[in-house]
């Protein structure tokens, strides 16, 4: 019987940050469920979703943390930056102010995370061509000045969404492979190589408690 297997080789934690309303939650559901809600609900605190992709025959499980964009939530959300291998900073190409906040988000990430975090700048809502306030080359220039990856996406029409996540996960994979992280579990609890953990058999899962790194 052909069934989907939940086995994966690596587990990488990624955070989504950016101003309120730039489309973080929709980018995430587009990626994990291929869904888009015109009226998605306001995110409170942090939410979480996972997805598995294949990079060079390795199954990589992305654990993606979606954070609330409102300023005052940073007190809570910044705790989630720690241990993350990657971050997407989103802005809305049709709202200049959200692009202007990018620098603040970047600073926030750097202050609260491990140094070698892969950061990607994402100009979302690229479908709103008529309302564009941030030119592609402005985004690109900011990204290259700060050593970030850059992509423009549209969670609405799905363009570049998978590409964005695949790119960042591949880069993390390459980075980690080039420089294997040695077992400081407290600092990076999610890096462990995970043996095929199956969720089919709860009893079995229960018996090998130790192998679960999630």
């Amino acid at each position: 019987m052909a069934r989907i297997d939940d086995g994966y080789d690596y587990l990488y934690k990624i955070v989504l940050v950016g101003d309120s309303g730039v489309g973080k939650s929709n980018l995430l559901t587009r990626f994990t469920k291929n869904e888009f809600n015109y009226d998605s609900r306001t995110t409170i605190g942090v939410e979480f979703a996972t997805s598995i992709i294949k990079v060079e025959e390795k199954a990589i499980k992305a654990q993606i943390w979606d954070t609330a964009g409102q300023e005052r939530y940073r007190a809570i959300t910044k705790a989630y930056y720690r241990g993350a291998f990657g971050a997407l900073i989103l802005y809305d190409i049709s709202k200049k102010a959200t692009f202007e906040s990018v620098e603040r988000w970047l600073k926030e990430l750097k202050e609260n995370s491990d140094n070698d975090m892969v950061i990607m700048l994402v100009g979302n809502k690229s479908d709103l061509t008529n309302q564009r306030q941030v030119r592609t080359d402005e985004g690109k220039a900011f990204a290259s000045a700060h050593g970030l990856n850059f992509i423009e996406t549209s969670a609405l029409d799905a363009s570049n969404v998978n590409e964005a996540f695949t790119e960042i996960l591949t880069e993390i994979y390459n980075q980690k492979r080039a420089k294997p992280v040695v077992g400081d579990k407290e600092q990076a609890p999610d890096v462990e190589k995970v043996q095929n953990i199956r969720i089919t058999d709860p009893a079995k899962e229960h018996s090998k408690k130790k192998s679960c790194s999630c």
């Binding site: 052909a2 069934r3 989907i4 297997d5 939940d6 086995g7 994966y8 990626f31 994990t32 469920k33 291929n34 979703a49 996972t50 997805s51 598995i52 992709i53 294949k54 199954a59 799905a158 998978n162 695949t166 199956r198 969720i199 089919t200 709860p202």
Partner: peptide
């Protein structure tokens, strides 16, 4: 090994959590 659900060009390579949950769980 992992066998991603093929759902057209967009979804290639992406496995959906909910599908896994629903498909693999006991009743």
């Amino acid at each position: 090994m992992l066998e991603p659900v093929e759902q057209g060009p967009h979804d290639a390579g992406v496995t959906k959590l909910e599908d896994i949950l629903i498909a693999k769980r006991s009743e």
